[in-house]
């Protein structure tokens, strides 16, 4: 098997008392899109910062293209494109200056591609970064992140706070990166529908741990959302085997559950109920069931 693009093993990190990452392992191989999901402060950004070498691995190891991003920043960062959540760019630079400046660091820079994108986005090259709106800033940051055709594109919550047009631009850039030359994309997002459409592989981080990971299909296959009706009204949520979250009231409840469906049906039957309808749960339902307050005992697999 070929070398992984990203290989994180047993990575732990704490900031003071707070455990930001706890024994996280994460592997990415070429030509695929990886979605990172998790609540605010779950550790997604901390993981991404480790990939960029902005944080030093205190325990565990981080390898990007087989290299340590801390000891070999040039070797790693040259082949990486990065768009941060805050879309940090030097405020005083003009867009054209930013492009030339970024080009100097990346021998593989494709000025034609950058120009095409700038034209598509209708960005005025003479404008300074500080004069740009939020969306234009994201577009500018995106061009700076993809115009050297990076082998690995890392986007930290690229869609947060943007309008539909700019979100589409960003998704297009992700798709092109993967479709054109089989490069790799890692992106984190709160928009779970976007993650569901866009990722080949999803990693859900919760309280610094990998709560769930796998291909979108395998995750959805493993989780069902069922409507359950009971003969009698229930005052509190029924405790059903395999249930991750139970919502509803009275006789009808909707349950997100994983594990064996047979066991689930038996458990419902024992409680005097009937499964009316079952389907694969969506990522959003799984996320809320796993991470949200409605979850029962998520630790019980």
């Amino acid at each position: 098997m070929t070398e992984h693009v990203v290989d994180v093993a047993g990575l732990s990190r704490r900031f003071g008392q707070k455990v930001a990452l706890d024994e996280v392992s994460f592997v990415a191989s070429a030509g695929r899109i990886y979605g990172l999901v998790g609540a605010n402060g779950a550790g997604k950004t901390t993981l991404i910062k480790h990939l960029l070498g902005l944080l030093r691995a205190k325990s565990g190891s981080v390898r990007v293209f087989g290299r340590d991003p801390v000891r070999d920043p040039v070797g790693v960062l040259r082949r990486v494109g990065y768009l941060s959540e805050e879309r940090e760019l030097p405020e005083w630079m003009r867009i054209d200056e930013l492009m030339r400046y970024t080009q100097a660091y990346h021998p593989s820079w494709d000025m034609g591609y950058a120009d095409d994108l700038l034209d598509t986005f209708n960005l005025d090259r003479a404008k300074k970064v500080k004069e740009l709106s939020k969306g234009m800033r994201a577009q500018t940051g995106l061009v700076a992140a993809v115009a050297h055709r990076p082998d690995l594109l890392i986007l930290d919550e690229p869609s947060t706070g943007l309008d539909a047009v700019v979100r589409k631009d960003i998704l297009d850039a992700i798709i092109r990166t993967v479709a054109d030359d089989g490069r790799t994309v890692i992106f984190s997002s709160h928009l779970l529908e976007e993650v569901e459409r866009m990722s080949d592989h999803v990693t859900m981080i919760h309280n610094g741990r990998v709560a769930l990971e796998g291909s979108v299909e395998s995750i959805r296959d493993a989780h069902q959302r069922s409507s359950v009706t009971f003969a009698e009204r229930l005052d509190e949520a029924p405790k059903i085997d395999g249930a991750l979250s139970t919502e509803g009231g009275g006789r009808s409840w909707s349950v997100v559950h994983n594990g064996s469906i047979e066991r689930f049906r038996q458990s419902v039957a024992q409680l005097g109920g009937e499964v009316v309808q079952s389907r694969d749960a969506t990522l959003e339902e799984i996320f809320i069931a796993r991470v949200g307050r409605g979850r029962l005992s998520a630790e019980a697999e």
Binding site: V74, L77, Y82
Partner: peptide, 20 residues
């Protein structure tokens, strides 16, 4: 870069592909 009253190295500078 100064933000919220705190100075720090900006991620843009930190992720430039150049040795420290």
């Amino acid at each position: 870069r100064r933000r919220h009253g705190v100075s720090d190295l900006s991620a843009f500078d930190a992720t430039l592909a150049v040795g420290t």
